[in-house]
């Protein structure tokens, strides 16, 4: 564990650019997962509204402060409500959202298999 940590630190120092590319990637990923409150059909990443541009700066700052992706989502969820997240959290409100399609898939499979079962 310790070895890995040291290795990581060395990697970070030696490879500053690499990390930067990574940061841009996380930044884009987070912005893509946020819904813009001004032009409500767009993600923050896609939107060019004042709000979205500022929020992108906030995300960048938070990443540099060392916050994880999860922490940034929580921060924004607290400020703006669950609505801002494009990726709905799995909770009481969204059980059906996530599970219903899977149930439909299983039911479909069952119907097809039943067809052959009957024939025999």
């Amino acid at each position: 564990m310790k070895f890995i940590n040291i290795f990581l630190i060395v990697a970070i120092i030696l490879n500053f650019n690499f990390l930067k590319a990574d940061e841009i990637k996380t930044e884009n990923k987070i912005a893509k997962n946020l819904r813009c409150l001004i032009c409500q059909g767009q993600s923050v990443h896609d939107s060019d509204s004042e709000f979205a541009i500022s929020l992108k700066i906030v995300i960048k700052n938070k990443i540099q402060e060392g916050l994880s992706e999860e922490q940034i989502y929580n921060f924004l969820k607290m400020k703006y409500g669950e609505w801002i997240l494009y990726d709905p959290v799995f909770n009481r409100n969204t059980y059906f959202l996530w599970l219903l399609p899977i149930l439909i898939f299983l039911a479909g499979g069952a119907i097809i298999i039943k067809r052959f079962y009957y024939k025999k």
Binding site: F51, I53, S54, L55, I57, V58, N61, M78, K79, Y80
Partner: peptide, 9 residues
């Protein structure tokens, strides 16, 4: 840059 306003929500 509008970032402080975001802290306020």
């Amino acid at each position: 840059d509008g970032t402080a306003s975001i802290e306020w929500g």
